[in-house]
Amino acid sequence: MHFDPAVLVDYWPLLLQGAWLTLQVSVAALVMGYVAGIAVALIALVPGWLPGLVTGCYVETLRNIPFIIILFVVYYGLPFCGIRLPATLVGTTALALFASAYYAEIVRAAILALPRGQFESARAIGMSPMSAMWHVVAPQILRALVPPSTNMTLTMMKESSVLSSITVPELTYQSLVVQGNTFAPFEVFAAVASIYWLIAVVIAEASRRLERRVGAVQAEAVSRNRIADRYLSLVARRT
């Protein structure tokens, strides 16, 4: 067994094409999923038991089913309803559907974490619920949304690899193509994993910058005894 990156030399363009599609699909699903997620979160907050029940079922159903199953349900469900779309669009829709449940929970939690009085004072003065959300609630929760949304977007970007199973030519699909042509699994998957890893690191870093721009991060300093620290933390001491 030897590691020979040269076998990939003809296949880099294919892998990069796949990576580019992975990025495009992830961004499109992020936008679609977030819009849907905000809508679900807002419906969930409408008073009464029915909106909560309906949105609760939506969220729990999507969260408890493997994404690959959601993907196939959408893949076979759209033609079943007479809708025929290219595989890439089907995959993006399924990905957005899947992510929307998580985004909805993120948005809902952030809104609920804000003191009720903020929304109520806007309502009492005569703002409509949407105006109160836009002028008073949204600007205050924006920063709190960034870290969990980034986490979810990373998860979603990774889940997009499953789109390979409905022949969407994204990165994982291309890696299987290259693997079939070269029979060099080590090289292929090392390269592909590195590309995913790189995308993840870039997204995480971008989110950190975004968070800093949206507002200063309040770091919580926890001071502790050194002996206890030996057991209760995993941070390596530099000497």
Binding site: E120, S121, A124, I125, G126, H135, Q140
Partner: peptide
Amino acid sequence: DALRPQVGIVFQQFHLWP
């Protein structure tokens, strides 16, 4: 909502928008 501005309220905790 149209009538609400007619009734001004000052809350105990003020609820200013930070």
